[in-house]
Nucleic acid binder design. Structure first.
Length: 507
RNA sequence: GGUCCUGUGGCCGAGUGGUUAGGCUCAGCUCUGCAAAAGCUGCUACUCCAGUUCGAACCUGGACGGGACCUCCA
């Protein structure tokens, strides 16, 4: 097993990963709230954890990866009297059942995840499917004395909890600062302390989603779902919990409090947080209104207006965002994301994306070249050393940025061997193929995008026929014909590359 | 206002107390009928000021700039 170091938000430093029950690993990541389309910022988080999941699997762990779907309980302006369940609100606005809202957006979510080649988690539980577990956990927290009921609402008693526990252990904030800096909000009267948060909310008459509970009809608070579901599927204490950095001060802080309040144990050994995605230097978020959707970026994502997976916003778009000169493939965007470490902010821009797209194409072209390069009796390159560096990069807190730099060394070796400037033994060529398989395809989750369907196979034959004709023309020094073929293919979107071993093409 | 992060060459973006990050762009060369591709070479940076050190972009302090969180947010 590779020695893996990861950055633990709890300690604010990297430490070596030790699983509780190796080779098993429990991984929980906070999933989306399906009241609208997932945006690119959400995708970055899920892509980052996809890499971690893939790497843990690759180095031999048996991972149970739980990523929830929030379909109830996620409030707008949680503490305000006007607070409203996000999904309930959408349902009211669109005159649909709440579950229709969730169903609609989960199609879109799954489609986007699959376009990004993000592996599905082992379990994808929904909050509404675990109401009983949430009620039980809430009751247990009350029994332990860390929560109280008031007029059908149940609140977590942060002040009481803080007497014996460090509430701000994850955020690094002390209680006094938080108390002094919390703004005045509505609906504070019935709570004992201003930091107290809801475990259970009483349903108003117009509220659609409601369940019976010991405290009357209502619905669960947002934070309790992750505690209840992670406890159910991964245990009272599990290995890794992830999510976006913006969840640290509230959601994850409260998860820790709930779990200790219920079970007397910290829920997680390693907290891992991904940084935000910015657009023109500003965080992309729904509240700022500067989000954009994968469909606005991707080429070929054509959803029919009446497709069940087409949310109204997706259907119109298809790779036409005003900020970007052209559409990009999902794999180019995935590669772009991995060029930045997951704990750094990632700024989306047209230029940066185009640079990544070219780099990605070069990486993939080299893989094709690798299939045909000649073997020598000796090697002039240290391929084993590169493989070791690739593992070292990933072991150092999943440093995909450094990994990619190592992989471009591989590209260099492949190309120069192809040009007969360096030599590789067959064993080294095979090892390079293994490196590609492991790091590019299995771990980074990239894939070659040209489909191997019938039309592609036929097209390949047709273009090779045309290239043969062009070659004959070149041999006969009929350059006007050969250039005409090349130019016309070019304008049709086919690029010709003349190499030592003949011509090749790509779209 | 409080807490915290950050400032790297034309652009994006790693990194470590002393050694080439990498990608993209640009220029020159090799190859080529020309071009593209590929290869080679060059452009060699670390906001500013002070300190610690034999030596700092990397540690400490300050200034200025950017950002995040403190309210829902991945």
């Amino acid at each position: 097993m590779q020695p893996l170091f990861l950055y633990n938000t709890l300690l604010r430093k990297k430490e070596e990963f030790k699983a509780i029950n190796p080779p098993f690993v429990g991984l929980y990541v906070c999933g989306p709230t399906l009241y609208s389309d997932v945006h690119i910022g959400n995708c970055r988080t899920f892509t980052s954890f996809d890499i971690m999941y893939r790497y843990l699997l690759h180095i031999g762990y048996k991972v149970r990866y739980v990523r929830n779907i929030t379909d109830v309980g996620h409030m707008e302006n949680e503490d305000a009297a006007t607070g409203e369940d996000r999904i309930g609100k959408q349902a009211r606005l669109k005159q649909l059942e709440p579950m229709e809202i969730v169903q609609r957006y989960s199609f879109g979510f799954r489609e986007v995840m699959s376009l990004f080649n993000i592996l599905p988690p082992s379990i994808e539980p929904t909050a509404s499917g675990h109401i009983i577990e949430q009620i039980e956990m809430t009751q247990k927290i009350i029994d332990q004395g860390y929560a109280y009921e008031k007029d059908g609402n149940v609140y977590f008693d942060v002040e009481k909890f803080s007497k014996t526990n460090n509430y701000g252990i994850l955020s690094g904030r002390n209680l006094e600062d938080q108390l002094n800096n919390t703004r005045d909000l509505d609906g504070q009267e019935e709570k004992k302390g201003r930091l107290d948060f809801a475990l259970w909310k009483k349903a108003k008459p117009e509220h659609i989603m409601r369940w019976n509970s010991p405290w009357g009809e209502g619905f669960p608070g947002w934070h309790i779902e992750c505690s209840a579901m992670s406890k159910k599927y991964l245990g009272e204490t599990f290995d890794i919990h992830g999510g976006g950095m913006d969840l640290i001060p509230t959601h994850h802080t409260n998860e820790i409090a709930q779990n200790i309040g219920c079970c007397g144990a910290a829920p997680v050994n390693y907290w891992v947080h991904t940084n935000m995605l910015t657009l023109n230097g500003q965080k992309m978020s729904r509240s700022l209104g500067n989000v954009f959707l994968p469909a606005e970026l991707f080429s070929g994502m054509k959803l029919a207006e009446d497709s069940p997976s087409a949310t109204p916003s997706q259907a119109k778009l298809n790779g036409k965002h005003p900020l970007f000169e052209k559409a990009f493939s999902p794999m180019a965007v995935r590669f772009f994301m991995m060029q930045t470490h997951y704990r750094s902010t990632l700024d989306f821009s047209n230029e940066a994306l185009q640079a990544s797209e070219k780099g990605f194409e070069r990486l993939m072209e080299a893989y094709k070249t690798l299939q045909t390069i000649p073997a020598s009796t000796t090697s002039s390159e240290d391929v084993k050393g590169i493989e070791a560096k690739c593992y070292a990069a990933m072991n150092d807190d999943f440093n995909t940025s450094v990994l990619i730099a190592e992989l471009f060394d591989v590209v260099k070796i492949i190309n120069s061997t192809n040009d007969r400037k360096t030599q590789l033994t067959q064993a080294d060529i095979d090892l390079l193929k293994t490196i590609y398989q492991h790091f590019v395809f299995d771990i980074m989750g990239l894939k070659i995008e040209t489909e191997n369907d019938k039309t592609t196979v036929v097209l390949d034959k047709v273009i090779h026929l045309v290239l043969d004709i062009r070659n004959d023309a070149k041999t006969n020094k009929n350059f006007s014909l050969s250039d005409k073929i090349r130019d016309n293919l070019n304008s049709a979107g086919v690029t010709i590359k003349d190499g030592k071993e003949g011509s090749s093409w790509k779209i």
